[in-house]
């Protein structure tokens, strides 16, 4: 289950910002980025597998059939 809270998310973002501040050289910044991107792409792979399971069938027909009238 998701971590719902009002304070925790904030600590999380602060922590990240602090980490970013500590990184001073461009080199380590780049490797930090690369590492994060690799981790992100692993995450995304497992996520895509789950999305495959819930995605509506026949994408082309489905999006073609999604026609709205104006609003507002």
């Amino acid at each position: 289950m998701a971590t719902r809270d009002s304070g925790g998310g904030q600590q999380h973002t602060n922590r990240r910002a602090d980490e970013a501040d500590e990184v001073t050289t461009e080199e380590s910044e780049a490797s930090d980025l690369k590492e994060r991107h690799e981790k992100l792409s692993e995450d995304v792979d497992s996520l895509l597998d789950e999305i495959d399971d819930v995605l509506e069938e026949n994408a082309e027909e489905f999006v073609k059939g999604y026609v709205q009238k104006g609003g507002e």
Partner: peptide
């Protein structure tokens, strides 16, 4: 909840939230 992709991301703890369910 079972179909929305945003809702799936939340279910998997992939989104920071502001309020409790």
């Amino acid at each position: 909840p079972e179909k929305g992709l945003y809702n799936r991301l939340v279910e998997r703890g992939r989104f920071d939230l502001v309020v409790s369910e």
